[in-house]
């Protein structure tokens, strides 16, 4: 199925969890925070939270700023 990640289309397995997606993208889960459809998904729920086709995800990290 297709979801949107940071505005780009991303193919993921049916029923993939947030944790599965982070693994697929080779992201360090400790360095990111994830929103699905504008709702923050806390780290503790990354394993259980199942994505649906068309979900809009934002994956953010910290960068330099003032």
């Amino acid at each position: 199925m297709i979801v949107s990640v940071n505005g780009d289309s991303q193919e993921v397995m049916e029923n993939a969890s947030v944790a599965d997606l982070l693994q697929l993208l080779e992201l360090n889960a400790a360095h990111v925070a994830v929103e699905v459809n504008r709702e923050l998904i806390p780290r503790e729920q990354h394993q259980q939270y199942r994505l649906s086709a068309g979900d809009q995800l934002e994956i953010v990290t910290l960068v330099g700023g003032g």
Partner: peptide
């Protein structure tokens, strides 16, 4: 020290994250 929150760069990242350069025991973010 202040930090900003931005979209993770998914496809052109060089593997460097600012967090690798910040001593989290020394600084309150």
């Amino acid at each position: 020290i202040t930090v900003a929150v931005r979209r993770e760069r998914l496809y052109d990242q060089h593997g460097q994250n600012i967090l690798d350069y910040i001593d989290l025991n020394r600084y309150i973010l």
